[in-house]
């Protein structure tokens, strides 16, 4: 088993009478990429702040490679790249000034610093904007510059809070590619986000947070499979009138499964190709079931998110 690099034990945070985080425990092994999902106010940013040493826990412990970031800050954060919340930027400094400062603090030797800055900026597509005052950058470019800062120094662990916030679709895709490459290179990533597709694409595991409590810790399954591991095809069916699940099950056969999403909605999974899908739809209509529409099912992760934390904020 890979070694544990990040460990949270019974972590809690209280602001006055409000309990922002309650007894949260989880661990990240080296090379793991973990999504941290929850609605606004669930405590995701509070958790990341405590891991980054920006906030002291009210209870419990955080350890990065066994070090407490609120007490042994420099040691604990030595190989960590952090982007928490939306940091402000000092408007008159240049992008290259900021990255040079970050690289220097992270201990990048001066002879390698220019290369490290260029490489991080190139990965995030801000190389040509380095000579501009950061106050003149758009929100998206500024965000990418900060992300480049988090990547400088080849960090082992990346703590990213809504990293794609404010990015246009192309930049978001570029960032996903960068993070995907880092994940393949064995970096440990904790990704707090609202975007289920980010987690679906980038993470091995997902943590669900609701009202400051961890309500789920599961692997991210990319495709639903049968017990032998063969991929299943899914269809979300909507009917005009109430339906009986047993009738659908009998049409699907033993290899298929039915999940009722309400009295008039169901998602079915079955082995086979498009021809099998067409046969099934014909059988449903032939059996007299009042089918209104058939569409691809909601992504698996989205279904689990809704089951764990409710409808709020899932995008």
């Amino acid at each position: 088993m890979a070694s544990e690099v990040l460990s949270l034990e019974h972590l809690s945070k209280r602001y006055g009478s409000r309990e922002a985080l309650r007894d949260v425990s989880f661990h990240l092994a080296a090379g793991e990429s973990v999504g941290y999902l929850g609605p606004n106010g669930a405590g995701k940013t509070t958790t990341l702040r405590m891991i980054a040493g920006l906030t002291v826990p009210s209870g419990g412990t955080v350890r990065i490679h066994g070090k407490d970031p609120s007490r042994e800050r420099a040691d604990a954060l030595a190989r960590v790249g952090v982007l928490v919340e939306t940091p402000g930027l000092v408007p008159y400094v240049l992008g290259e000034d900021l990255l040079d400062y970050i690289a220097a603090v992270k201990g990048v030797p001066s002879r390698h610093r220019a290369t490290a800055i260029r490489e991080a900026a190139r990965q995030l597509g801000v190389e040509e904007h380095l000579a501009r005052p950061v106050g003149s950058l758009s929100t998206g470019l500024a965000r990418r510059l900060l992300l480049a800062g988090a990547l400088i120094g080849d960090p082992e662990i990346l703590l990213l809070d809504e990293p794609t916030l404010g990015l246009d679709p192309a930049a978001r895709q570029d960032l996903r590619k960068v993070l995907s490459d880092l994940r393949r290179a064995g970096r440990t990533i904790l990704l707090s986000t609202h975007l289920l597709e980010d987690v679906q694409e980038l993470c091995d595991r997902v943590l669900f947070l609701r009202d400051g409590q961890l309500v789920g810790d599961e692997p991210v399954e990319r495709v639903r499979t049968d017990p032998r591991g063969a991929p299943l095809r899914g269809l979300h069916l909507r009917f005009i009138d109430d339906i009986v699940g047993e009738r659908l099950r009998s049409l699907l056969g033993e290899a298929g499964t039915v999940e009722l999403d309400g009295p008039r909605e169901a998602t079915v999974y079955f082995p086979g190709d498009e021809r099998r899908q067409a046969e099934l739809l014909a059988a449903i209509i032939g059996a007299g079931l009042p089918l209104a529409s058939a569409s691809p099912p909601e992504p698996e992760l989205g279904r689990r998110y809704l089951a764990k934390v409710g409808r709020e904020d899932a995008t």
């Binding site: 920006l54 952090v82 919340e85 940091p87 930027l89 000092v90 603090v105």
Partner: peptide
């Protein structure tokens, strides 16, 4: 200035003695 602009959110998580 950093505290006003919230720019300390970049400097504080860096591995350094504040």
């Amino acid at each position: 200035e950093d505290l006003t602009l919230r720019a300390h959110l970049t400097a504080f998580p860096l591995p350094q003695d504040r």
